[in-house]
Amino acid sequence: MEVSMTVNGTSYTHDVEPRTLLVTHLRENLRLTGTHVGCDTSSCGACTIIVDGETVKSCTLLAVQCEGAEIKTIEGMAENGKLHPIQESFREKHGLQCGFCTPGMILSSWQLLERNPNPSEDEIRHSLEGNFCRCTGYQNIVTAVQDAATKV
């Protein structure tokens, strides 16, 4: 099936198998490998991206469901060579170690701050419970989001 979508400002049209997951399409066909796959049960959040302004786990959608969609992945967060403030904060506050969960964490944090520019610690922790990190104990991720909230 043919599917067209705009990803990070570029239009793409591909012929895909109907069963192709959106995350597979992004990684294999578009070669946007910043979106990661950490599980097969939509539990880990490593594949979180933005579809039409809302974060989704891109393993929960088929590529063909995204006909005409406007998509942003981690590769599209920095604009004109300038990091997004959330990306800056993750670096400043040591909000990552191995980096594998980081793209999903950054995008989930983006969604939170869109909806709630001044979240409490509890609200941050609650809103990130769909993203697993095995390295950081989440502490510096929370700190990074708190820091980003002062900048976004």
């Binding site: 946007l32 490998t33 910043g34 979106t35 992945t73 981690i74 590769e75 967060m77 920095a78 990091l83 990306q87 993750f90 670096r91 990552l96 980096g99 594998f100 980081t102 793209p103 950054i106």
Partner: peptide, 9 residues
């Protein structure tokens, strides 16, 4: 971190 925060690891 530079590569990881941009999804370029």
């Amino acid at each position: 971190d530079n590569r990881f925060i941009k999804g370029e690891g």
